[in-house]
Design a protein around this nucleic acid. Structure first.
Lengths: 333, 333
DNA sequence: CGGGCGTATTTGAACGATCAAATTGTGGAA
DNA sequence: TTCCACAATTTGATCGTTCAAATACGCCCG
């Protein structure tokens, strides 16, 4: 095959005009059945595939979504993003969309990249991850009317009331509540929580779930460590010497691994410890963990972006339908 | 901003013709300096960005490489692939290339996807991962003259002599040799190897490195388990009861985690165990591991694909320069 | 048998860029 | 002064597709 066939070649082969071939591809319903068959046969014979760039130029639509790939932070939760991107790619393919990656080290550089890709007609929507309160990226996207969905809520005052920021997130509180319940039933009432220092939206949310799962009376042990196995281990080792604890629910698998190590060396190898993210590390150590279901998040993102439509348009969504909270699932081990 | 500016708008604003603007962008050397400045000023003022699809249609070049995302690619674990894709995206951006993802569940589906993307003018080249002997994907790519580079050698008879299959790989043998050396010096002469069942190219390669690092005389303990923490644990537990072992070099971090658990419960918590891939699991447990340096692999892939050229062309490479072996690095913990 | 209507198909133009060839301008040698 | 070589710039054509409008074809009704 020297040069791939064009729509003109197909038209000639089928004895029809360009536009009829185009109609067979895009609006088959308006073409008479006998003609349609003849054209489809010619398409198959010639191995014709429409030239995507030509189509994009004419329609001014790229059918491509841009995804920012976070720099590898060295942390465990990279796996969640990895699975999310994978699932997004699969679902997007099913809906006739392509996924284009871009890299950036700072929010400012990310905005520049998004602008380039948008202006160049390369993408017509963006998926952003790791949004935070006052995020300049989402502000830019709104101002420039670029359709977008974020994985993660904005963590502002009015997350649920703003239909101009579509987002999908995992219900962290529901996850830790499940974990807390399970721990109470299988280990005992005294369930501690090991979280990050207060102030991160995600962390505070996960702590809320633990609080909600605990009975209103009774003691509550709350431990804090930064996202580090070693620091978590120290904190838990110290706490075990002071408090009576049946189980620990953790805000992340890293923290859980640290807690596990402290428990083993502290003579409590049977202590129930539940992590969050269900990373390979938790799986390897046999720790239960809350699974984020990134596949469901990806499906939600595309649903918000496109709805039932086959193309991406700047959508105006009713206030109630602008957000998706995915219920995570506890993996018991 | 209603509709983004075109090259015609810029030309009008700068008082020159379309083509001169195009030259400023693509071959600045042939434009007089004063004219160039005037045009560049107009570009800035209007916020002009060339429309990528129009350019692609005309040049018949997409400046985009396709990457298959497969979480379970043979021999390349999730984190390594993740970092590789990220580094590839960054380097590609620096060279003016874009990265497009595609998903597929089987080699056949992958070929179909590649064909669609290629025929549609969406991608000029492909990066494939996890190649194996007799891989239908590479055969298809060669037949259809699609430029490609693989992360991973083909594991055939003549990997190094075929300039029609460009590849970059990590020198697994060098990695396990380093690990074996280190283990001998820090733990003792009796270094065992825990690998996968024979037959996988990657696994056999890593075993070779261990053999090469061991003295010619003396006992050699070789253990085998599939890629599973639990199975590795069983094998090592059994072996520790029989053999005198100072250290274990493993073909993967999963195997290493299993070995670690066996060592701890078997009363040898201090046994030196070295993994491969430097995943978060190894980091969390404080196990040394061989780091693959996916960033170097990504750089090598682009170097093979493009050389010094600014565009991707079906390259004919001299026999010696068609392959890159990246030397991995032992992370001591 | 002419007119009107609805369906099926064709035609010309446009999307925004680059290529190839033509044109203009400039200085130097004959 | 004339002519040529060379650099700088412009013009017309083209890439492959879809949009919008025009045309062809039946068919029914009065």
């Amino acid at each position: 095959m020297n040069r791939s066939a064009t729509i003109e070649d197909v038209a000639r082969a089928a004895g029809v005009s360009r536009q009829t071939v185009s109609n067979v591809l895009n609006t088959p319903a308006i073409v008479r059945e006998s003609t349609r068959d003849r054209v489809q046969d010619a398409i198959r014979r010639l191995g014709y595939a429409p030239h995507a760039s030509a189509r994009r130029l004419r329609t001014r639509r790229s059918s491509t979504i841009g995804v920012h790939l976070d720099p590898y932070a060295g942390g465990i939760s990279g796996v969640v993003l990895d699975r999310f991107v994978h699932a997004l790619t699969e679902h997007a393919g099913d809906r006739g969309l392509r996924v284009m990656l871009y890299a950036a080290r700072t929010p400012e550089e990310e905005i520049r990249r998004m602008a380039d890709l948008r202006d160049g007609g390369d993408i017509d929507a963006v998926v952003v991850t790791g949004t935070f309160s006052g995020d300049p990226r989402t502000a830019w996207l709104r101002e420039n009317a670029v359709p977008f969905v974020s994985f993660g809520r904005p963590w502002g005052e009015d997350d649920f009331s703003r239909p101009d920021h579509l987002w999908v997130d995992v219900d962290g509180a529901a996850g830790t509540a499940q974990a807390t319940w399970h721990a109470q039933q299988s280990a005992g009432a005294r369930v501690a929580f090991l979280g990050w220092p207060a102030g991160s939206g995600t962390g505070d949310d996960r702590e809320r779930g633990w609080l909600a799962g605990m009975p209103d009376d009774g003691p509550r042990v709350r431990l804090t460590a930064p996202e580090s196995v070693a620091r978590a281990r120290e904190e838990v080792a110290a706490a075990l010497a002071v408090h009576d604890i049946d189980a620990i629910v953790c805000a992340s698998d890293s923290l859980a691994v640290g807690a596990h190590l402290a428990a083993v060396t502290g003579g409590r190898p049977d202590l129930t410890i539940i992590g969050f993210d269900n990373t390979p590390a938790a799986e390897a150590l046999g720790l239960p963990s809350v699974e984020q279901l990134p596949e469901d998040v990806a499906a939600g993102v595309l649903e918000l972006l496109m709805g039932d439509s086959a193309v991406i348009t700047p959508r105006v969504v009713e206030a109630g339908a602008a957000h998706v909270l995915v219920e995570p699932r506890l993996i018991v081990r």
